[in-house]
Design a protein around this nucleic acid. Structure first.
Lengths: 150, 150
DNA sequence: CTAAACTTGTTTGTACACCAATCAACTATA
DNA sequence: TATAGTTGATTGGTGTACAAACAAGTTTAG
């Protein structure tokens, strides 16, 4: 019959994560929205800057996007000529992606805003809390095994 | 000109929030997926259980969804007869929503799973860290002014 | 060898969430 | 009682996520 068991929405991890994410998105929008990049698109560009060249799928692993999501992100970035795609000569299933010079330049100008965004997101916390929070969050974000070698 | 300024994706608040959210969604799915409710639908039902009757828009404020999102959630819940809608006699713009008896019963059976979901989401942390984390997260989740009276 | 089973990379279809813009109904002001 | 401003709900468009499909590569048993 289950009479009203307690459940406080405002104390649920999922609800709070969602709201924190909303706030972060708003900040992201404010800082980077001008260039019409989404957080995922930005993540893909930044990671590509680090690794130079990878298969689409592998990039997905590096940025925590599933393959289908990655393909959409890549498609939109490619249509704006921010990245290049070419087939892998050794494996015809693979599409190798890399930054275009235009993309490379754009990422470099945005990276500092990227750092600002995290700073502003954590702004309600004192410095000690910020580190604490990121550490705890990192523990919670572990999904399964990580990337691989390539 | 900007030569490679540092930016570690894995330490950005947004990226970690997103991954934590992904993990939470997976847990939610595992625990509640059988009944085909999304986290937002569940939040709406649970909140409706608390307040009995509110306008659609106001429910959105209580659950941190914007009006457009709320309307989609309500529509889907109504199509499954989990909630009822009726016009507000005092304000013809408003739609007053409330749980159907079916919806009420469903929420009651799911609330304990809801609590499990948060527990399992926070499972990688020790009890002290859990409280810490939720407190910090709540600070970050503050957007602007809250609801209102009605 | 080579055919079957399995794995991995990419794409397609669908549902959902979010924003911006719109329209309708209420409120305040002059 | 007009007019401007505000609030409730809806619509359309974009982006993300999951599941399923398909194609290419690898492994294993005959």
């Amino acid at each position: 019959m289950a009479a009203k068991e307690g459940y406080i929405l405002e104390r649920q991890a999922g609800h709070l994560l969602r709201r924190a994410h909303q706030r972060h998105s708003a900040i992201f929008q404010e800082k980077i929205g001008d260039v019409q990049l989404t957080p995922l698109q930005f993540a893909a560009l930044v990671k590509l800057r680090d690794v130079t060249e990878v298969s689409q799928n592998h990039l997905g692993r590096l940025t925590a996007m599933d393959a289908a999501t990655m393909q959409g992100v890549i498609k939109r970035l490619a249509s704006r000529n921010l990245i290049k795609r070419r087939p892998d000569p050794d494996d015809r299933r693979r599409l190798i992606v890399s930054l275009s010079s235009e993309g490379y330049e754009l990422v470099n100008t945005l990276v500092s805003s990227g750092n600002d965004i995290t700073a502003q997101t954590l702004e309600p916390l004192c410095p000690a809390e910020r580190k604490q929070f990121l550490d705890l969050l990192a523990k919670l974000a572990q999904l399964s095994s990580n990337d691989a070698s390539e």
